[in-house]
Write a protein that binds this DNA or RNA. Structure first.
Length: 560
RNA sequence: GCGCCCGUAGCUCAAUUGGAUAGAGCGUUUGACUACGAAUCAAGAGGUUAGAGGUUCAAGUCCUCUCGGGCGCACCA
């Protein structure tokens, strides 16, 4: 790695460990400053010399075959890579490794469980769950690229007081035929009505809670309804996952832990962690200045903290994870903080591996969307529109395209997923259908288009033959591209470490922009002696774009 | 009231995690398809990084306060 060469040169000259200089080397913002830079300001005090003179001395002293120039600019030593050498080598690497370029074995032998998506039964799949699904899926793919064994768990919200309320509402106002015909929307209506009326009527809340208790105690009728609601919902969700191309290793939802909670409650008792508070059983967290974790309601029914504790323990025992990730909105930060601390108090050192990966909410007009008030946007409608729009574009721009429907799906889904993933994870997103359907500028379809363009060039240019070598002139003209290609493994590592797919989204945009810019300036298919070199660059771009998109869960069609 | 998160161009977002002249896209103005895909490219305009202090050779980035927004804070998940 070139950065390491620079670090070693500097370490040698300065008589310091290479790890130290490695950490200080940075990437200059501007291309004309070279490829790596070493700031000398920190050395000024200890060497009692100006940073400028230190930089000048170092630059004069250092040289290495990998760098065509090492110069001093201000207080920086700038390293410029030999473009022909570095360019040829990265293109060769990618040609050999193809989509495996950027893979590592960092996670070899380690299992990570990841809790993602987790929609609620009997409710439509909302935009909020979209974020968890696509971010979680991308993180899974990133971790797999690093060699981790990833277990994707869809912790479906199929239990809890809400079902008592729903059953109660169905009992009062539901009509079986209507619900059979149009299950989720009808159930949603019932749910919304329940909350509307409960606002007026204290009694109703209590009835809802009673129904949940019955459900939990095994009441046959309540369980029959619950089973029905669940099956229909899962089928519905399955359709959406199919469209998005997401799969899970486990569908064990909340209800799955029903028979696993008692053990946890007993254990908490044994370890003397439970105490009574206002009729409920809680684990106090006063020493952390946090509110207590509620384990059992005063009516004896369980809560989600109880279930999450049982789930965490179950996952540890079943999968022996080294890390357990929860891709859940940041509004649940407190809950996960409590979860981790309770596990810790129970004496499980592996609680350290519990990691909440929060993300911002999808807001509407700056406010939270509320299921209870029936204000929400449905994912399948959005996907449908995006796919439709892609189909319209294809009909207009590429009517002879084979496999139109599949490509429209890939592009439509690409637009929606990319729009979500390009935002920094933690930021709230204001919902905008218009933005999600956009296909120009910094969008998924833009990247897909760039990839398709590159593929067309390769198809027309023929097989790349002979030794791959990028000549001086091509390397110089394509340097912005080559430089980005060199950075790909680093971008993958960064995204994985920070659990942040947006870094890959940004990377892939940068690469596409660099490529399109090159495309506008240079005629690639010109029949000259450098054709092979240019095609090699194009091939590397296509390969990395495809892999970058794949890491986001997005397909890269060869034509569109 | 307390806690967590956020505040950068008209809008949506970047900024190598403390480094050089704060960058893209959308929108807007202008130009480029009888040269490889115009879902594209080139160029212009657009900024007191919410505000005030502080730490540092260096602050959009770290600390304190103020203002503004979001989300949590006991029987929902």
């Amino acid at each position: 790695m070139y950065k390491l060469s620079a670090a070693e040169l500097l370490a040698n000259a300065l008589n310091k460990p290479a790890e130290e200089t490695m950490k200080q080397i940075e990437r200059p913002k501007q291309l004309h400053h070279g490829d790596y830079a070493f700031p000398c300001f920190a050395l000024a005090k200890e060497k009692r010399q100006s940073p400028q003179s230190i930089a000048a001395e170092l630059a004069a002293e250092l040289s290495h075959e990998e760098f065509s120039a090492i110069t001093a600019v201000g207080g920086y030593v700038n390293f410029t890579l030999d473009k022909k050498l570095a360019g040829s080598s990265v293109v060769k690497d990618i040609h050999q490794q193809r989509v495996a370029y950027g893979s590592t074995a960092i996670g070899q032998g380690q299992t990570v469980t990841i809790d993602l998506s987790s929609p609620n039964i009997a409710k439509p799949f909302s935009m909020g769950h979209l974020r968890s699904t696509v971010i979680g899926n991308s993180i899974s793919l990133l971790l797999e690229k690093q060699g981790y064994e990833v277990v994707r768990i869809n912790h479906v919200g199929d239990w809890g007081t809400q079902f008592g309320k729903l059953i109660c509402a169905y009992e009062k106002w539901g009509e079986e035929a209507k619900v059979r015909a149009n299950t989720i929307p009808e159930l949603l209506k019932l749910y919304v009505r329940f909350h509307k009326e409960a606002a007026q009527d204290e009694q109703l809340e209590q009835e809802g809670r009673d129904w949940f208790r019955k459900l939990e105690q095994g009441d046959a009728y309540a369980n029959k309804l619950w089973r029905w609601f669940r099956d229909v919902s899962m089928e519905e969700f399955g359709r959406v996952y199919e469209i998005m191309g997401v799969h899970f290793d486990s569908d064990a939802g909340e209800a799955f832990y029903n028979d696993k909670m008692e053990r946890v409650v007993k254990e908490l008792e044994q370890k003397k962690l439970l105490s009574m508070s206002e009729g409920a059983q809680v684990v106090r967290l006063d020493e952390f200045d946090l509110p207590p974790s509620l384990i059992k309601k005063k009516d004896g029914a369980t809560l989600y903290a109880t279930r999450d504790l049982a789930a965490a323990i179950y996952r540890k025992e079943t999968y022996q994870f080294s890390k357990s990730l929860y891709v859940v909105g940041h509004e649940q930060s407190l809950h996960f903080q409590q979860l981790k601390l309770v596990l810790d108090k129970m004496g499980y050192e592996w609680a350290e591996g519990i990691n909440h990966i929060p993300f911002g909410m999808v807001l509407q007009d700056g406010k939270k969307m509320s299921t209870r008030k029936g204000k929400l946007v449905l994912l399948d409608k959005v996907l449908e529109q995006a796919i439709q729009l892609a189909a319209t574009n294809i009909a207009e721009k590429n009517p002879n395209l084979p496999d139109k429907e599949e490509v429209a799906r890939q592009v439509g889904v690409g637009a929606v997923l990319f729009h979500d993933l390009k935002h920094e994870r933690i930021h709230d997103i204001d919902f905008s259908l218009e933005d999600m359907l956009r296909v120009e500028g910094e969008t998924g379809p833009y990247v897909q288009y760039t990839h398709a363009r590159a593929c067309t060039l390769l198809a027309k240019g023929g097989e790349i033959q002979g030794v791959l070598e990028v000549d001086e002139e091509t390397a110089a003209a394509a340097w912005p591209i080559l430089s980005l290609l060199l950075q790909f493994p680093g971008a993958v590592g960064n995204a994985a470490i920070n659990y942040d797919p947006s870094r890959i989204a940004k990377y892939v945009i940068d690469l596409a922009q660099a490529f399109n810019s090159y495309y506008g300036k240079v005629r690639i298919l010109e029949e000259d002696e450098k054709l092979g070199a240019r095609l090699a660059v194009v091939e590397a771009v296509a390969s990395v774009l495809e892999e970058g998109l794949r890491l986001l869960g997005i397909h890269a069609p060869r034509q569109m």
